[in-house]
Amino acid sequence: MQRTDYQIIADMISPGSRVLDLGCGDGSLLELLSREKNITGQGLEIDSANVGSCLQKGVSVIHGDLDQGLVDYADKSFDCVILSRTLQALLRPDYVLDEVIRVGKRGVVTFPNFGHFRSRAHLLIKGRMPITEQLPEPWYFSPNIHLFTIKDFEDLCRRKNIAIENSVYLRGGRPFKKALLYNLIAEEAVYAIRGKK
């Protein structure tokens, strides 16, 4: 089954571009993009079993830890750098976001919205860390170590002088454009960003 954010990401990618997918998992997204958008893809993935799956799909993938940064890549060496459901699992999300903007002409970032009303209610009423569809693991072994809301992300972009070109939100797997109370009703967000000149 295809992930709900993939088609939205695909819509934000120009055909034929060079794409770097950080935390590319089993390579499904890059495979989709190379099939539908004829991109040249490069993945970065920490799990060696996932690396094997990428290679099976014909996706180029580097086995490594992206918290170590993208230091080796030249400035603007990719048309687009993707962080799909990865930012919240990083040790230094702010640093990696800087690197995304440096290495990529554009970035596409997707993340689960911790500001969704179900998460808020879970914490408010039950007094415990939320377990939701987007964040299914209990706190003690969740890979999602830096949870944040849509407004937190927009604040960070503002502070880092990152321009938001486009944003799409997901609710029940269906996309919607920015609307009233979006930080309350969106389960997931997809942002296209770039560095301001």
């Binding site: 490069q42 990428c54 993938v61 086995h63 890549y73 060496s77």
Partner: peptide, 13 residues
């Protein structure tokens, strides 16, 4: 990477 070459790598356990 610095040369934007297409590369795959893996450390096998």
């Amino acid at each position: 990477k610095a040369n934007s070459a297409e590369v795959s790598s893996c450390e096998i356990e």
